[in-house]
Protein backbone atom coordinates (compact mmCIF):
# COMPACT_ATOMS: atom_id res chain seq x y z
CA UNK A 1 0.00 0.00 0.00
CA UNK A 2 1.06 3.54 -0.72
CA UNK A 3 2.55 5.16 2.40
CA UNK A 4 0.81 8.49 1.93
CA UNK A 5 -2.69 7.36 2.97
CA UNK A 6 -1.25 5.68 6.07
CA UNK A 7 0.67 8.81 6.99
CA UNK A 8 -2.53 10.78 6.71
CA UNK A 9 -4.39 8.34 8.97
CA UNK A 10 -1.65 8.47 11.60
CA UNK A 11 -1.54 12.24 11.30
CA UNK A 12 -5.30 12.37 11.81
CA UNK A 13 -5.02 10.23 14.94
CA UNK A 14 -2.36 12.56 16.30
CA UNK A 15 -4.29 15.68 15.30
CA UNK A 16 -1.50 16.68 13.00
CA UNK A 17 -3.11 17.03 9.58
CA UNK A 18 -4.22 20.18 7.85
CA UNK A 19 -7.69 20.83 6.47
CA UNK A 20 -6.40 20.11 2.98
CA UNK A 21 -4.89 16.81 4.07
CA UNK A 22 -8.13 15.93 5.83
CA UNK A 23 -10.02 16.41 2.59
CA UNK A 24 -7.43 14.33 0.79
CA UNK A 25 -7.83 11.56 3.34
CA UNK A 26 -11.60 11.66 3.07
CA UNK A 27 -11.38 11.17 -0.69
CA UNK A 28 -8.98 8.27 -0.28
CA UNK A 29 -11.22 6.63 2.32
CA UNK A 30 -14.27 7.00 0.13
CA UNK A 31 -12.47 5.16 -2.62
CA UNK A 32 -10.86 2.37 -0.61
CA UNK A 33 -12.75 0.10 1.82
CA UNK A 34 -9.49 -1.55 2.93
CA UNK A 35 -8.15 1.84 3.93
CA UNK A 36 -11.32 2.51 5.91
CA UNK A 37 -10.78 -0.75 7.76
CA UNK A 38 -7.19 0.15 8.58
CA UNK A 39 -8.24 3.57 9.79
CA UNK A 40 -10.95 2.06 11.97
CA UNK A 41 -8.48 -0.36 13.57
CA UNK A 42 -5.91 2.35 14.21
CA UNK A 43 -8.54 4.58 15.76
CA UNK A 44 -9.61 1.73 18.02
CA UNK A 45 -5.98 1.20 18.97
CA UNK A 46 -5.63 4.88 19.90
CA UNK A 47 -8.83 4.69 21.95
CA UNK A 48 -7.48 1.59 23.70
CA UNK A 49 -4.38 3.49 24.79
CA UNK A 50 -6.58 6.15 26.32
CA UNK A 51 -8.53 3.57 28.31
CA UNK A 52 -5.43 2.17 30.00
CA UNK A 53 -5.23 3.80 33.41
CA UNK A 54 -1.89 4.81 34.88
CA UNK A 55 -0.75 2.59 37.71
CA UNK A 56 -0.11 3.90 41.17
CA UNK A 57 3.52 3.52 42.21
CA UNK A 58 4.30 1.28 45.20
CA UNK A 59 3.37 3.01 48.43
CA UNK A 60 6.95 3.17 49.63
CA UNK A 61 8.57 4.40 46.44
CA UNK A 62 8.71 8.06 47.38
CA UNK A 63 10.17 7.23 50.77
CA UNK A 64 12.78 5.04 49.09
CA UNK A 65 13.76 7.82 46.72
CA UNK A 66 13.89 10.49 49.38
CA UNK A 67 15.72 8.25 51.79
CA UNK A 68 18.36 7.64 49.16
CA UNK A 69 18.87 11.32 48.34
CA UNK A 70 17.86 13.02 51.56
CA UNK A 71 19.65 16.34 51.96
CA UNK A 72 21.39 17.24 55.20
CA UNK A 73 19.00 18.13 57.94
CA UNK A 74 19.36 18.81 61.59
CA UNK A 75 20.45 15.56 63.18
CA UNK A 76 17.73 15.84 65.78
CA UNK A 77 15.56 12.79 66.37
CA UNK A 78 15.11 10.22 63.70
CA UNK A 79 15.81 12.52 60.78
CA UNK A 80 19.49 12.29 61.52
CA UNK A 81 19.34 8.56 61.18
CA UNK A 82 18.75 8.64 57.48
CA UNK A 83 21.49 8.65 54.88
CA UNK A 84 23.62 11.75 54.81
CA UNK A 85 23.72 13.78 51.62
CA UNK A 86 25.69 13.90 49.47
CA UNK A 87 26.61 10.24 49.55
CA UNK A 88 29.29 8.64 47.42
CA UNK A 89 27.85 8.02 43.99
CA UNK A 90 29.01 4.46 43.78
CA UNK A 91 27.34 3.59 47.01
CA UNK A 92 24.03 5.00 46.01
CA UNK A 93 23.98 3.44 42.58
CA UNK A 94 25.30 0.23 43.96
CA UNK A 95 22.47 0.42 46.39
CA UNK A 96 19.89 0.77 43.70
CA UNK A 97 21.28 -2.27 41.98
CA UNK A 98 21.30 -4.11 45.23
CA UNK A 99 17.71 -3.20 45.87
CA UNK A 100 16.80 -4.35 42.40
CA UNK A 101 18.63 -7.55 43.04
CA UNK A 102 16.79 -8.07 46.25
CA UNK A 103 13.55 -7.46 44.42
CA UNK A 104 14.63 -10.01 41.85
CA UNK A 105 14.96 -12.54 44.59
CA UNK A 106 11.53 -11.57 45.78
CA UNK A 107 10.21 -12.08 42.29
CA UNK A 108 11.59 -15.57 42.18
CA UNK A 109 9.67 -16.39 45.33
CA UNK A 110 12.74 -17.95 46.85
CA UNK A 111 12.12 -18.99 50.36
CA UNK A 112 13.27 -21.25 53.11
CA UNK A 113 16.73 -22.07 54.24
CA UNK A 114 18.81 -25.06 53.33
CA UNK A 115 16.37 -26.28 50.73
CA UNK A 116 19.09 -26.63 48.14
CA UNK A 117 17.11 -24.59 45.65
CA UNK A 118 19.43 -23.54 42.82
CA UNK A 119 17.94 -20.07 42.84
CA UNK A 120 18.97 -19.59 46.44
CA UNK A 121 22.44 -18.69 45.31
CA UNK A 122 22.38 -14.95 45.59
CA UNK A 123 26.06 -14.53 44.81
CA UNK A 124 26.52 -11.34 42.92
CA UNK A 125 23.31 -9.86 44.17
CA UNK A 126 25.02 -8.26 47.12
CA UNK A 127 25.53 -4.57 47.42
CA UNK A 128 25.02 -1.48 49.43
CA UNK A 129 21.82 0.47 49.26
CA UNK A 130 22.81 3.45 51.30
CA UNK A 131 24.84 4.53 54.24
CA UNK A 132 23.17 5.78 57.35
CA UNK A 133 23.89 6.96 60.83
CA UNK A 134 22.52 5.23 63.84
CA UNK A 135 20.17 7.36 65.92
CA UNK A 136 21.86 6.46 69.17
CA UNK A 137 20.31 4.68 72.13
CA UNK A 138 17.65 7.37 72.53
CA UNK A 139 16.15 6.33 69.19
CA UNK A 140 15.82 2.66 70.09
CA UNK A 141 12.33 1.42 70.78
CA UNK A 142 13.02 -2.27 71.33
CA UNK A 143 15.96 -4.61 71.00
CA UNK A 144 17.21 -8.18 71.13
CA UNK A 145 20.62 -8.84 72.62
CA UNK A 146 22.30 -12.04 71.46
CA UNK A 147 25.24 -13.67 73.13
CA UNK A 148 25.58 -17.20 71.80
CA UNK A 149 28.68 -19.17 70.90
CA UNK A 150 27.97 -18.82 67.20
CA UNK A 151 26.74 -15.26 67.13
CA UNK A 152 26.57 -12.15 69.23
CA UNK A 153 25.33 -8.61 68.81
CA UNK A 154 22.06 -6.72 68.73
CA UNK A 155 18.93 -6.27 66.67
CA UNK A 156 17.35 -2.91 67.42
CA UNK A 157 14.16 -1.35 66.11
CA UNK A 158 13.57 2.30 65.26
CA UNK A 159 10.81 4.31 63.64
CA UNK A 160 11.28 7.08 61.13
CA UNK A 161 9.72 8.65 58.05
CA UNK A 162 6.84 6.21 58.21
CA UNK A 163 9.20 3.26 58.20
CA UNK A 164 9.94 0.56 60.72
CA UNK A 165 13.67 0.08 60.73
CA UNK A 166 15.64 -2.86 62.06
CA UNK A 167 19.25 -2.11 62.85
CA UNK A 168 21.07 -5.44 62.76
CA UNK A 169 24.60 -5.52 64.12
CA UNK A 170 25.76 -9.11 64.49
CA UNK A 171 28.94 -11.11 64.34
CA UNK A 172 28.91 -14.84 63.63
CA UNK A 173 31.71 -17.32 64.02
CA UNK A 174 30.39 -19.51 61.21
CA UNK A 175 27.76 -19.16 58.47
CA UNK A 176 24.42 -18.45 60.10
CA UNK A 177 21.17 -17.68 58.32
CA UNK A 178 18.89 -15.19 59.99
CA UNK A 179 15.28 -15.91 59.13
CA UNK A 180 12.89 -13.16 60.15
CA UNK A 181 9.17 -13.89 59.84
CA UNK A 182 6.75 -10.99 59.85
CA UNK A 183 3.07 -10.43 59.25
CA UNK A 184 2.94 -9.32 55.62
CA UNK A 185 -0.52 -7.90 56.24
CA UNK A 186 0.99 -5.35 58.59
CA UNK A 187 4.53 -4.88 57.35
CA UNK A 188 5.97 -4.65 53.86
CA UNK A 189 9.65 -5.06 53.13
CA UNK A 190 10.97 -1.83 51.68
CA UNK A 191 14.73 -2.23 51.33
CA UNK A 192 17.96 -2.31 53.27
CA UNK A 193 21.08 -0.30 53.89
CA UNK A 194 24.56 -1.26 55.03
CA UNK A 195 26.95 0.50 57.34
CA UNK A 196 29.89 -1.56 56.26
CA UNK A 197 31.27 -2.71 52.92
CA UNK A 198 30.75 -6.42 53.41
CA UNK A 199 29.06 -8.27 50.57
CA UNK A 200 25.53 -9.14 51.56
CA UNK A 201 22.04 -9.47 50.26
CA UNK A 202 18.62 -9.61 51.82
CA UNK A 203 16.15 -12.12 50.47
CA UNK A 204 12.49 -11.40 50.95
CA UNK A 205 9.59 -13.67 50.08
CA UNK A 206 6.47 -11.82 51.14
CA UNK A 207 6.40 -12.64 54.85
CA UNK A 208 10.01 -13.52 55.54
CA UNK A 209 13.45 -12.05 55.06
CA UNK A 210 16.59 -14.14 55.09
CA UNK A 211 20.14 -12.90 55.46
CA UNK A 212 23.15 -15.18 55.34
CA UNK A 213 25.74 -14.03 57.83
CA UNK A 214 29.40 -14.77 58.23
CA UNK A 215 31.65 -12.63 60.39
CA UNK A 216 30.68 -9.11 61.45
CA UNK A 217 27.87 -7.38 59.56
CA UNK A 218 25.96 -4.23 60.28
CA UNK A 219 22.97 -3.14 58.25
CA UNK A 220 19.41 -1.90 58.47
CA UNK A 221 16.24 -3.35 57.01
CA UNK A 222 13.29 -1.09 56.20
CA UNK A 223 9.61 -1.95 56.37
CA UNK A 224 6.52 0.04 55.66
CA UNK A 225 3.86 -0.57 58.26
CA UNK A 226 0.10 -0.23 58.43
CA UNK A 227 -0.21 -1.30 62.04
CA UNK A 228 -1.40 1.21 64.63
CA UNK A 229 -0.31 -0.47 67.83
CA UNK A 230 2.60 -2.87 67.60
CA UNK A 231 4.10 -5.50 65.35
CA UNK A 232 6.20 -8.56 66.02
CA UNK A 233 9.06 -10.00 64.03
CA UNK A 234 10.15 -13.51 64.87
CA UNK A 235 13.84 -14.26 64.36
CA UNK A 236 15.30 -17.71 63.89
CA UNK A 237 19.03 -18.26 63.67
CA UNK A 238 19.96 -21.32 61.65
CA UNK A 239 23.33 -22.95 60.97
CA UNK A 240 23.88 -26.21 59.06
CA UNK A 241 20.15 -26.83 59.05
CA UNK A 242 19.94 -26.61 62.85
CA UNK A 243 18.09 -23.85 64.63
CA UNK A 244 20.45 -22.22 67.12
CA UNK A 245 18.05 -19.76 68.66
CA UNK A 246 14.65 -18.16 68.26
CA UNK A 247 13.44 -14.87 69.62
CA UNK A 248 10.64 -12.41 68.92
CA UNK A 249 11.10 -8.67 68.71
CA UNK A 250 8.00 -6.70 69.64
CA UNK A 251 7.95 -3.24 68.10
CA UNK A 252 5.52 -0.70 69.58
CA UNK A 253 4.46 1.71 66.87
CA UNK A 254 3.01 4.33 69.19
CA UNK A 255 5.36 6.11 71.53
Amino acid sequence: MNEKPLELIHGEIDGRISATEREELRALLDADPKLREIRSELQKLAESFEKVQPLDPPAGLRARILTAIRPPEKPAGLAGWFPAWPMPTALRYGGAVAFGAAAAVVALQLGGVGQGTPGMDVTGLAGTMARYQEPGPAGDISAIQLNLNELHGTITSHLGEGLVILDIDLTTTRPVAIVADYDSGRLRFSGYAQTDDSAMSVTNNDHQIIVNHEGPQHYAVFFEGDAKDSVEINFRFVADGQQLHEETLKIPLVN
Binding site: P58, L61, I65, F99, V106
Partner: peptide, 19 residues
Protein backbone atom coordinates in the same frame (compact mmCIF):
# COMPACT_ATOMS: atom_id res chain seq x y z
CA UNK B 1 6.26 -4.71 32.07
CA UNK B 2 7.32 -5.45 35.62
CA UNK B 3 6.07 -3.60 38.67
CA UNK B 4 9.13 -3.99 40.86
CA UNK B 5 11.67 -3.37 38.14
CA UNK B 6 9.72 -0.21 37.32
CA UNK B 7 9.99 0.95 40.92
CA UNK B 8 13.73 0.31 40.92
CA UNK B 9 14.20 2.16 37.65
CA UNK B 10 12.13 5.08 38.90
CA UNK B 11 14.27 5.27 42.01
CA UNK B 12 17.52 5.23 40.07
CA UNK B 13 16.16 7.79 37.60
CA UNK B 14 15.42 10.22 40.40
CA UNK B 15 18.78 9.57 42.00
CA UNK B 16 20.56 10.29 38.73
CA UNK B 17 18.46 13.37 38.14
CA UNK B 18 19.30 14.60 41.61
CA UNK B 19 22.97 13.96 41.16
Amino acid sequence: GNYDDAADVAQVAFMKAFE
